[in-house]
Amino acid sequence: MMEKPLLEIQNLHVEFKSGKEVVRPIRGIDLKVNRRETVGIVGESGCGKSVTSLTVMGLLPEKTGRIADGSILFDGTELTALPEKAYRKIRGNDISMIFQEPMTSLNPVFTIGEQLSEPLRQHRKMGKKEIRETIISTLKQVGLPRAEQIIDEYPHQLSGGMRQRVMISLALLCQPKLMIADEPTTALDVTIQAQILELLKAIRGSNDMSLMLITHDLGVVAEMCDRVIVMYAGEIVEEAGVEAIFDRPLHPYTQGLMQSLPSNNERKGKLFSIKGQVPKPSEIGKGCAFANRCPHAFDRCFAEAPPVFSEAGHQSKCWLLDPVSKEGSRDESSIPIRS
């Protein structure tokens, strides 16, 4: 029997109010994260990938943001209707999060130990000594040298890479079932990024934990993920196993993203580029959100939003995959990617 997924999001819609305008950064997404699985959410800024993670964490801005529709089922609990108090028991305990900016996510006036003991005091009944021991062992787990000293140091005494390690240990403390990493390596240097990726791989192997990795970097996805979800303008446009998506991307947007990587182009040659830019939420019409930039768009794409077409676990929202309107255009659309 199939194990139930750890996280299951269905038909999620999120709205933001800004003045009189209502912005819809997420327009009906369905996604699953299985136990012990690493799922990558890929997309460019403004595609809604970060809003998705904030929604799961219950951290939408209270006054302006709200879940308009849909359900988020986490380990049997419906999160969308959860009162704040109950949410606090889950947040930092069952679900934890790593943010992009290790510089600003730590409070400069508290020591590392003081900040790390917070979730333990909230969620675990532990004595002071026990808390300290747990923190030190977690700091050691993320590969921080001199953990016994670092625990009494302040964030500014640590380098960027070390701070990101502290953030990861903070997320690990309560041994969460799901860890959400929002661009965990984007702000880091190349060699430090390599260190953090290796660390995340090691953690994922040793803990019984699912990882939701939000990134714009396809290279990070290729190395880390089991399954990939591609988002564009608040929708999921493609979803597949990591090898399938790199071998044969089905959606023209995913194809464009991969082809525009410099390493997939001839040196000094003209890079493939997706023309135009991501539409603002107010500019999305009734058709496919990608239609105005899509090299394969035809009449139907502008008139009607495509449903999800599924084929052996590889799903994509694109009219080109419609068996009815196919008419051989399919072969053109799937441009092979050099691997």
Partner: peptide, 12 residues
């Protein structure tokens, strides 16, 4: 040089 469409440009 391709001139990308500017979806924002038609808006006030």
């Amino acid at each position: 040089i391709e001139i990308p469409e500017q979806p924002g440009s038609s808006r006030p």
